[in-house]
Design a protein around this nucleic acid. Structure first.
Lengths: 149, 149
DNA sequence: CTCGTCGTGGGGAAAAGTGGGGAATATGGG
DNA sequence: CCCATATTCCCCACTTTTCCCCACGACGAG
């Protein structure tokens, strides 16, 4: 099981390529085979899953009912944005134009390690997201951790 | 087992031919033998199954009861539209006129990979479909994934 | 100081998407 | 039954995009 963490500010070159941070790379299972699936995330960001982690996501999606309209909508949205990419010799992934546009990414990105997935943000959008949270880290922590027990 | 994904905007030439995206092609089982079954989908789109995946669909339809009027209606509709097509040398399928008409397709198509099937849409109709969803991706995700646990 | 790793940039070969011509097949009327 | 018209299918050709490879500067470890 992957356990990504950390925050990294990297640049996107003119071909839409982004390097995967070395610390992140070390946490990728060899089972991923240098293959990643990039898709639309929640909020305006991208989710990046190593192949092996993506397989788990896909499994849970297969369990959904093809005859349920809401499920169809969900599956279509999730999968329509999904692309698999291979690391190049320099450990970079190249992100399709559609996804860059969706996430509002231009020259700079913020890469976050979030356990089993990696997130890619436009740094400014991430900042806005953080500033627009109605509650503070501390108060959310209180309610979140309470639920868990 | 197939696992198609991705979104592709392609064109239909004057002969009704549509190329299958390379990334989609790579996920087609050799068992499909370059043969696909195109039929009417849910919502105003076409479903395309590789031969091997279609066999599974057909199996599940065989399980339906010939004595149930609703089942008869369903099976007739599904099968009356179904056609099998072969890839040409350039990995294209040529889509029959009536199916193009049903899906409202003219010069441009949107191709979606949705796990075991491929969907073909008129891009504008798909956009309308997406805009008319009562809920957002995030909220649907919440309810869909919660149900599953 | 040297060597290796890491982030960044760009050029060229290969593949992918698109379009059209012509032979083979099918259809309908005389 | 034969011919004319229409349709289908296969092959060839062009253009664009993608991907793979090589190269450079910066930083840090030894």
């Amino acid at each position: 099981m992957s356990s990504f963490k950390g925050r990294y500010e990297y640049s996107v070159d003119s071909k839409g390529r982004v390097a995967l941070p070395a610390k992140v790379r070390k946490n990728v299972s060899p089972a991923a085979n240098d293959t990643f699936i990039i898709t639309r995330g929640f909020e305006q960001c991208l989710f990046v899953y190593p192949q092996d982690e993506w397989n788990k996501v896909e499994e849970s999606v297969r369990g959904l009912s093809p005859s349920n309209p809401q499920h169809r909508f969900f599956v279509r949205t999730l999968l329509q944005w999904a692309t698999d990419v291979q690391l190049d010799g320099q450990s970079r992934v190249s992100i399709p134009q559609d996804l860059l546009k969706f996430a509002g990414i231009e020259n700079e990105v913020l890469i976050l390690g979030v356990l089993e997935r990696i997130e890619i943000w436009n740094p400014k959008i991430y900042e806005q997201y953080m500033n627009n949270q109605p509650a503070t880290y501390e108060t959310v922590a209180e309610s979140v951790l309470k639920q868990q027990q």
